[in-house]
């Protein structure tokens, strides 16, 4: 086992003098330090000259774009609110207008209705007055006819009883009866 470890150490010793830990082989230090410094300087130059300004500007540009977009959105929102207000105003106006039109129409209809009703009433009144007159005429006619019929009937009855009666007497008697 010790032999194996020795062998391993020997194998390593071909490149590294220290047993087991190449990290402690100081002969490689100048080499590593040199290449590290070169690497760090190259990376620093790449980053500070190209990469970081580029990424920084991209981020700033994005931030600017976002800020602009947010401002534009705010503006559009205001516009939308304005439009909504105008729309609501228009709606309210239209509603008031509609109410007015409805009221006007109602008044007009009412007026028409009133006029028609009045006319109809007048016509009805005229018709009923005329009818009344006719009825009165018919009644008067009927009364006259009653007198005539009564006189004739009385004359016929008197004649049938075999007596002759003076027309004037009969008439007077009928008239007296009718009145009575």
């Amino acid at each position: 086992m010790a032999n194996t470890a020795n062998e391993a150490a020997h194998g390593a010793a071909a490149a590294a003098e220290s047993a087991g830990m190449p990290q402690l082989d100081f002969s490689t230090y100048p080499n590593q330090v040199f290449w590290l410094v070169v690497t760090i300087v190259v990376i620093y130059l790449i980053l500070s000259r190209i990469a970081l300004p580029r990424i920084g500007s991209v981020l700033a540009e994005r931030q600017g774009t976002i800020t602009n977009d947010i401002a534009a959105a705010e503006e559009l929102k205001l516009k939308a609110q304005e439009a909504e207000g105008a729309y609501n105003q228009a709606l309210a106006d239209a509603r008031v207008e509609a109410q007015k039109i409805i009221a006007e129409a109602k008044a007009e209809i009412q007026a028409d209705l009133d006029a028609a009703t009045a006319e109809a009433d007048a016509q009805i009144a005229a018709k009923s007055a005329e009818s009344q007159k006719r009825i009165d005429e018919i009644r008067a006619g009927a009364l006259e006819s009653v007198t005539e019929v009564a006189k004739d009937t009385a004359k016929e009855i008197v004649a049938a009883l075999g007596q002759s009666a003076d027309a004037r007497t009969v008439t007077a008697a009928v008239n007296a009866r009718l009145k009575g």
Binding site: A12, A15, A16, P22, T28, P30, N31, Q32, F34
Partner: peptide, 26 residues
Amino acid sequence: FHPMDQFIVKPLFGGDTINWYTPTNV
């Protein structure tokens, strides 16, 4: 077991000496 062999600094293009400027696996 050669757990530490992976850390050995070797010249890239052969040779045994490692000068400060030698291109190595580093």
